[in-house]
């Protein structure tokens, strides 16, 4: 490829990507820092005034600082779900990979089903009510674990396959019992894939909208994504506030993305190569 064509292609790609992918983000950012009347025009113009702090404060303090509550709830939900996901999925991925047993086919089938099938929501609500878990954060944590564990099991199982069995055997000879082998030898060696799982799942759970919508009704347990939904009607005419909210909700995944770009891509593309 000649230099001219190469640069030409680069410039074209940059302009195209800029147009399609960057303009919407700029639009969000610009609208978020406009005043109400200018934002209502929905156009792609430079803000005439910068009520940045004011917009920020209004969004934060709306409905008794609901956004703060939501951040706390989303954090609890994300951290709790991921802690359980990492341990439970690693245990399954490990035993499934290591052990030849009649139930291997069943496990694979259930993992695949969990990956593809949508949950039956109303029966789940009914069941959660029976268990006293409906509209509670810990109930929601278990839901996220149940819905996301398939993906994590697949990642863990693939990674366990790369750890030689001699590692387990060395531990057995050293006198390790099953729990020791797993928690003191295998789990630490799973660190790379654990980072991937944490990063990918934290973004997914933090961004989850449907499940909290069904299983976390009410204002006490509102999550970050639900604030968008709740404020949509409230900020009906205040696009600047709505977009400021979008911006605030997008910041955590943005930070994760900046630091863990590689792990996210690795996690989401696993399976693409081996098939």
């Amino acid at each position: 490829m000649t230099l001219v064509r190469r640069y030409g292609l680069t410039v074209a790609a940059l302009i195209g990507a800029g147009f399609v992918f960057v303009v919407p983000f700029l639009f969000i950012v610009l609208t978020a820092v406009k005043d109400r009347t200018q934002a209502a025009q929905l156009d792609f113009t430079w803000p005439t005034s910068f009520p940045l702090w004011e917009n920020f404060w209004t969004v934060i303090s709306t409905r008794d600082f609901m956004l703060i509550t939501a951040y706390i709830n989303s954090t609890i939900l994300t951290v709790g779900s991921i802690t359980l996901l990492v341990i439970l999925a690693a245990m399954v991925g490990y035993v499934r990979q290591r052990r030849k047993a009649w139930w291997n086919g069943l496990v694979d089938f259930l993992v695949l089903a969990g990956l593809m099938m949508p949950p039956a929501v109303v029966p789940t609500i009914w069941l959660l009510q029976q268990l006293g878990l409906f509209a509670t954060l810990h109930g929601m944590i278990f839901i996220e674990v149940a819905y996301n564990i398939s993906f994590c099991i697949i990642l863990y199982r693939a990674f366990v396959a790369t750890i030689p069995r001699e590692m387990d055997e060395a531990a057995i000879i050293d006198g390790a019992r099953p729990m020791d082998i797993f928690f003191r030898v295998i789990l630490p060696m799973l660190k790379p894939v654990t980072i991937t799982v944490i990063v990918v799942q934290s973004v997914a759970i933090f961004n989850d909208f449907v499940n909290p919508l069904y299983y976390l009704p009410g204002n006490d347990n509102v999550t970050v994504q639900l604030t968008l939904y709740n404020f949509q009607s409230q900020f009906n005419t205040s696009y600047n506030l709505l977009f400021m909210n979008i911006l605030l909700v997008t910041i955590p995944p943005l930070i994760v993305f900046l630091f863990f770009n590689r792990q996210i891509v690795a996690g989401m593309t696993s399976g693409a190569v081996k098939g």
């Binding site: 030689p164 001699e166 590692m167 055997e169 060395a170 531990a171 057995i172 000879i173 050293d174 006198g175 390790a176 030898v185 630490p188 060696m189 660190k191």
Partner: peptide, 19 residues
């Protein structure tokens, strides 16, 4: 169980715990 046999083993790949 292996741990109760009074044996120790050295593996071909050494199998040292990397962490």
């Amino acid at each position: 169980e292996p741990r109760d046999r009074g044996i120790a083993m050295v593996f071909q790949s050494y199998a040292l715990y990397p962490h």
